[in-house]
Amino acid sequence: MASLTEDSATAGEEQGGVRRRDFINVAAASFAGVGAVSVALPLINQMNPSADVLAEASTEVDVSAIAPGQAIKTIFRKQPLFVRHLTPEEIAAAEKVSTSELRDPQTLEDRTKPGHKQWLITMGVCTHLGCVPLGAAAGEIKGEFGGYFCPCHGSSYDTAGRIRKGPAPKNLMVPDYSFTSDTVVKVG
C-alpha cells in the first residue's frame, strides 16, 4: 500500500505538481465549507422578522371620520402612521413649491393616490433617526412649513410631508396602500 501511494504521489507530481492527495484535500474542504454555509444560512435568517411579525404587516384604516385639517395617528407595523385630510389651502401650499428647491424632489401627486389628493398618508417616523414628528394630533406644533415638526433634531416637513429644513435626508415615507372603498384604506 505504501508503495502504491508513493507511486500515485510521484505520478501526480509529473503532471504539473498536482497530487491526488491535493484533490482530496480540496474536495474535503469544499464539502465541509458548503455544509457550514448551508447550516449558517438558517442561523442567520432566523434573525429576520418572524411569520407573526409579518402577519401584522398590513392594516386597514377607516378615514371617514377625519375632517379636513385633521389628522390621525394609527399603527402600521408597530410604527406610527399619519393619515391627514388636507385642506384646499394646504394642497395649494404644497403645490406652489417648485420641486427644484426640495432636498428630496417629489410633488404632492407623487405622494398621494389619483383622485384622493386630499389624503396624505405617511409613516410617522422621521427619516433622520426615527423619532415621531409632531403635528398630527390637535394642538401640536406643525413647524414652519405647516406639516410636521420633529422635536428630536428639528427637522421640518411641509403639508405634503416633504423634508424642508433640518437634518432628515428624505421625505416622510409613503407606505404602499390603496383605497378599498372611498373611506377605507388598506395599508401594506
Binding site: M47, P49, V53, Q79, G130
Partner: peptide, 9 residues
C-alpha cells in the same frame, strides 16, 4: 436594520 431588530421597529 430589519434583520437586526427582527421587525420593522
Amino acid at each position: 436594520q430589519t434583520w437586526l431588530l427582527g421587525g420593522f421597529a
